[in-house]
Computed example of a mutant assay.
Amino acid sequence: MEGMDKRETILQAASRAFATKGFHDSKVEEIASVAGVAKGTVYLYFKDKSTLLYEVLHYTREKYKHGLEEETERYTTAYDKLLGYTRFHLAQFPNMVKLHKLNMEQLTKFHNDPSSRRRMKDEQEGMMDFLTQIVQLGMDSGEFRTVNARDAALLCWGAMHANVHWAMVNEVEEIDSDRAEGIVNLILSGIGK
């Protein structure tokens, strides 16, 4: 197992542990065992359990972004890309909510740390740029009317995240990704006559 492979294996094991047991009930020894490494190896890559959780969040966001790029890359039209984006986002809900719900206390600490906030802001900015490119493609191809692409991307982002937030607050286990088409059509057509 190469250096990066070990690190990724540890991140995957920790991600599963934090998503099923939460931060406090996840033990580094158990994470190491699942990853097939010694406990000390975990500490070679991550200074403590809090750092490991923080890196799991970053790793999860990177995996999400990579999966999203793969999903939307399959399509040529902006509409299909936006639909693929929305389906993917809704389908990821169960994994995202478990990790965030079980680790809320620790996540709050990360939000108070300036370097953590900067990293999260950069990651979110990258996702907004990605969505803005899809909107811009739609305007350039004539599929979408010409508007401020960033504002339109923010509207799309908000609609998708509002669905996830609603489901989380109402303790919905899973969001039907078939709802994506209705969401995208509503975003593109609005509610006016």
Rank of each mutant, 00 (worst) to 15 (best):
V56H: 01
K65S: 15
S50I: 15
G36E: 07
F46S: 00
D48C: 06
K49I: 12
H58Y: 11
T60M: 11
F46E: 00
T41D: 08
L52H: 02
S50L: 11
E62W: 06
L52K: 02
G36P: 10
K47L: 12
A35Q: 02
T41K: 02
Y43V: 02
F46C: 02
V37A: 12
Y64H: 13
T51W: 06
K39W: 13
A38S: 12
Y43C: 04
V34E: 12
K63G: 13
T41W: 06
A35Y: 04
V56M: 03
Y45K: 01
E55A: 07
K39I: 09
T60H: 06
K63D: 12
T51I: 15
A35F: 02
Y45V: 01
F46K: 00
K39Y: 14
T51R: 10
K49S: 04
K47F: 11
L57F: 08
A35K: 00
K47A: 13
E55M: 10
Y54G: 04
V37Y: 08
Y54C: 01
R61P: 00
L52F: 05
E55S: 08
V56G: 01
L53N: 07
S50V: 15
A38I: 09
K49P: 04
E62T: 14
G40P: 03
Y59I: 05
K39Q: 14
K39M: 10
L44M: 15
D48R: 02
G40A: 14
Y64V: 10
K63I: 08
V56C: 10
K63T: 11
E55D: 13
K63N: 13
K65E: 13
T60F: 07
T51Y: 11
Y43D: 07
T41S: 13
Y43R: 09
T60C: 04
S50Q: 15
K47Q: 15
Y45I: 02
R61T: 12
V34H: 08
G36R: 05
Y43T: 07
K65D: 10
V34K: 06
G40R: 11
K65T: 13
